[in-house]
Amino acid sequence: MGCAISGLGLIPKQQTQPRNEDDAVAHLADEQIEMIKESWKVIQEDIAKVGIIMFVRLFETHPECKDVFFLFRDVQDLEKLRTSKELRAHGLRVMSFIEKSVARLDELDRLDLLALELGKTHYRYNAPPKYYGYVGAEFICAVRPILKDKWTPELEKAWKTLFQYVTGLMQQGYLEEEGAKHNHVMVSTKERPDKRNTAL
């Protein structure tokens, strides 16, 4: 089907070991960045539509993802999802993140911080990293018909690379937040006074 995210991606700066062999060598070239920016100009004209298509497809192809979304968990009718104001709002938030990511392609430090923070937020929402790659794949499937003949294998590779990079950073942010919460619980437990040894 051509919609799955491949193993191509940039290595986030904070990562010391590549996630797989493809990550060790792949990177976004200047021409790929330009292709992404040019295609984004067309995509953003249909930004709300792309957000809805992306999430309806996500729930269609990966129904287990609905468990993460409290508002959509029990909705079985995809037509209801297509007209849902809540889904439209969430789709727009995700598209806004993609827009910010594209705007920061020339400032990777800022993109890194944005994606790490989003990963930490997803930990607080209990949205695990295993779902992150699905969104990029469904985004690509949603924008391909909008871009029509402007969609090329090279452009697809560029978008896949960007999503691989961003989702890698999000995963890192998620794990950092998880570790921080775990360490906080461990420290809090150790700091509790032992009631048996407390003098009255």
Rank of each mutant, 00 (worst) to 15 (best):
P18S: 01
G173I: 02
D30Q: 14
K160P: 00
E45Q: 13
L28G: 06
A48I: 00
E154F: 01
P63R: 11
F163A: 13
A180E: 15
T61I: 10
P153W: 13
E38D: 14
F163Q: 11
V50P: 06
D30G: 06
A127G: 08
H62M: 05
G91T: 12
T189N: 14
Q15E: 03
K190N: 14
A142L: 10
I43W: 02
N20R: 07
K150F: 03
A103R: 06
L111W: 00
K190V: 12
I36H: 02
F163W: 14
P145Y: 13
D106E: 15
K41D: 05
V166A: 08
D46Y: 07
K130W: 09
G136W: 04
V42W: 04
A137Q: 11
E156Q: 14
A127R: 09
P128V: 04
D30L: 14
V185W: 13
R88D: 12
I52M: 15
L58P: 11
M1V: 14
I11W: 00
L147G: 10
K49G: 09
S96M: 05
D194C: 11
N20H: 06
V75E: 13
K85H: 14
P18C: 06
E60T: 15
Q76W: 11
R73K: 15
L111F: 01
D23P: 00
Q32L: 07
E117L: 03
G136L: 02
S6M: 02
A115E: 01
F55L: 11
L108H: 03
G173M: 02
F163C: 08
K41Q: 13
S84N: 04
V185M: 14
Q44E: 14
E86N: 12
D77Q: 12
M1Y: 09
M170H: 10
E86I: 13
F72G: 00
D106C: 06
V135D: 08
P153S: 15
V56Y: 07
G168P: 04
G2K: 06
A89V: 12
W40C: 09
Q17D: 14
D46L: 02
G119R: 00
V68E: 03
V68C: 09
P12D: 03
K66R: 15
Q76E: 15
G133S: 11
Q32P: 01
K195P: 12
V56Q: 09
V102R: 05
